[in-house]
């Protein structure tokens, strides 16, 4: 079970805030890029043959002598694409477990809000760079999504860029749960820019934030197997921590530039609770 009942009850009362308008197929609760039948007034336009007479604003015709029809906001469902990075780097230090939990948290929140939730995982199966998971619009789909998330193995090298480009045009919101430890991470964030915004949950472990290493080491990359000789002096560790800090700051800056909210989450058993608290503090969830 990825989410305990208490957390699920809490999530059912929350919804992911969306910055932009959505472009979707079905009606929903989010403002659409189109005009529709909601009660929220959007604009006027000149009457054209075929328009519904009930939309003619007679007060305006009496005052200005022109026939205008009222236009209203359309409300559509939110397409919410959740991408979970389950690459080799996420396999270490229990980050993959935290990533599954965080993805589950967002998915459950979306299902509870009536959003059209769709799961994605990288790396793919060798043919494609990603694997598309199940989708759903109601909480009834939750067991399927949870089961899929739990069953996804972690490991291997991942490339986020193709999926990022694909989701940028989805018309909805994108949630990326990843450690961003890929050389192309800047391009991924810059190219994502989904229509309705989204969220980057940046998952790093405590060992990555505060490396408990000493001595002369041959660091082995878990994904690529490349080696890097490092003398783990106090200065080296200090420089690494500065690099991590800069990495997080730049990821945050690039995320915002792409219209995404950003949250750095330390992996751990209570990662979901801490992330939810951070998102609420930023009013990303309401």
């Amino acid at each position: 079970m990825l989410l305990d009942p208490r957390l699920r009850a809490q999530l059912e009362r929350l919804a992911l805030g969306v910055r932009g308008r959505v472009t979707a197929q079905w009606a929903g609760r989010h403002s659409s890029t189109r005009l529709g039948e909601s009660l929220d007034f959007a604009d006027y336009r000149p009457y054209q043959p075929g328009d519904d007479y009930r939309r003619i604003d007679h007060n305006l015709r009496a005052r200005l002598g022109i026939v205008m029809v009222r236009q209203f906001e359309a409300e559509q469902e939110l397409p919410l694409d959740i991408v979970v990075d389950l690459s080799g780097s996420m396999e270490m230090h229990d980050k993959a477990t935290s990533a599954r939990t965080l993805a589950a948290m967002v998915a459950y929140m979306g299902l509870a809000s009536g959003d059209r939730v769709r799961l994605w995982a990288v790396p793919g199966d060798g043919v494609r760079t990603e694997i598309q998971g199940p989708a759903g619009r109601h909480l009834a789909a939750w067991p399927l999504l949870e089961s899929w998330l739990e069953s996804r193995p972690a490991g291997g090298g991942a490339s986020l860029r193709p999926l990022g480009r694909r989701l940028a045009a989805s018309g909805g919101a994108v949630v990326l749960v990843s450690d961003l430890l890929v050389e192309e991470w800047r391009g991924v964030l810059d190219g994502l820019a989904p229509t309705a915004g989204g969220l980057v949950l940046h998952v790093l472990s405590r060992q990555e934030l505060y490396p408990p290493l000493a001595g002369d080491l041959d660091l082995v990359d878990s994904e690529t197997g490349t080696r890097l000789a490092v003398s783990m002096s106090e200065e080296a560790v200090r420089n690494y921590q500065k690099a991590v800090e800069d990495f997080a700051l730049e990821a945050s800056r690039r995320s915002r530039r792409a219209g995404l909210d950003y949250l750095l989450v330390e992996a751990g058993p209570d990662a979901a609770e801490r992330a939810l608290e951070g998102l609420a503090r930023r009013e990303v969830v309401r």
């Binding site: 490396p211 041959d218 082995v220 994904e223 690529t224 080696r227």
Partner: peptide, 15 residues
């Protein structure tokens, strides 16, 4: 040197 497996050497290359 003692081999030490890390999630990624990306950030270590920047120190």
């Amino acid at each position: 040197r003692r081999p030490e497996r890390v999630p990624s050497t990306m950030l270590w290359q920047e120190i």
